[in-house]
Amino acid sequence: MRRLEKNHYKISLPIIKKNFQMDFYNWKFSDPLKINNYGIPEPEIKKLVYPDILLIPLLAFDKNLNRLGYGGGYYDRFIARLSNKKKIIKIGLAFSVQEIKKIPINKYDQKLDYIVTSEYIIE
């Protein structure tokens, strides 16, 4: 197993903004977090970053790498905007019981690259 050297990887967390937008900011375990209006911890220190890999929450998914989010479209908007700047890897995190036959999608929905579940990986 290869050990990661300090500063070889960075963690960033999202901050929700107005108009259903969000951005990601650097975060370290020693940095404070504040609770936003939705009850989600966000970084207080704000150094904007554009992540290479996104770990994306979801309510449900299908085998075609489509996800059903939490209804705000935050990740779909962010992915669309970030994809214009750079190549990113989009990974949905789920339990296998969250899989359904078909997710209803529209033109704004962003497909994932992988879905990692408690039992298998879809790519």
Score class of each variant (00 low, 15 high):
Q21L: 11
K101L: 07
S83A: 13
K10C: 04
Y70A: 01
L59M: 12
L55E: 06
P32K: 13
Q98G: 11
R81T: 05
I40Y: 03
I122P: 02
Y74F: 15
G73Y: 06
I35M: 11
D52F: 01
K28G: 07
I100T: 07
R3H: 06
E99L: 08
S83T: 11
P57D: 11
K102R: 15
D23M: 00
K90S: 07
N64D: 15
G71K: 04
I105A: 01
K10L: 10
A94G: 11
M1L: 05
Y120S: 14
N37F: 07
G71I: 04
F61D: 05
Y9E: 03
D31S: 10
D113R: 05
D31R: 09
P57Q: 07
I121E: 14
K28L: 14
L68A: 08
I103Q: 05
N66M: 07
W27Y: 15
N26V: 04
E123Y: 14
L58S: 03
P43F: 05
I105S: 06
Y75V: 03
Y108H: 09
R67M: 04
I100H: 10
K47C: 02
I100R: 08
T117W: 06
K86T: 11
Y25V: 02
L58P: 03
N64M: 08
G69Y: 05
N66K: 10
K63A: 12
L48T: 07
D23A: 08
F29K: 14
G72A: 06
F95Q: 06
N7T: 06
L55F: 15
E42T: 01
R2P: 10
N64S: 14
L82C: 09
N66Q: 14
E44G: 00
E119M: 05
E42L: 01
S12P: 04
D23T: 00
P57F: 08
S96A: 15
E123V: 05
P43M: 02
I115N: 13
F20V: 00
Y108V: 00
L33A: 02
G73L: 04
G39Q: 03
K47L: 06
D23Q: 13
P104S: 11
R3P: 00
N66V: 08
Y9F: 13
N19Y: 12
L65N: 09
N37Q: 10
S96Q: 15
K10Q: 15
K17I: 04
K101V: 00
F24P: 03
D31I: 10
L112N: 08
K17R: 11
I56A: 04
Y120M: 12
P51E: 10
K63V: 06
Y74H: 11
I45S: 11
D113K: 03
K18C: 02
P32N: 14
T117L: 03
L55W: 07
Y9K: 01
M1K: 06
L55G: 07
K102D: 12
I103P: 05
S30Y: 12
P14M: 00
M22C: 02
V49P: 00
K86C: 03
E5Y: 02
T117D: 10
L33P: 02
K107Q: 09
F20D: 13
E5Q: 13
S118G: 03
I121A: 13
S83Y: 04
G72K: 12
I40S: 02
I100A: 05
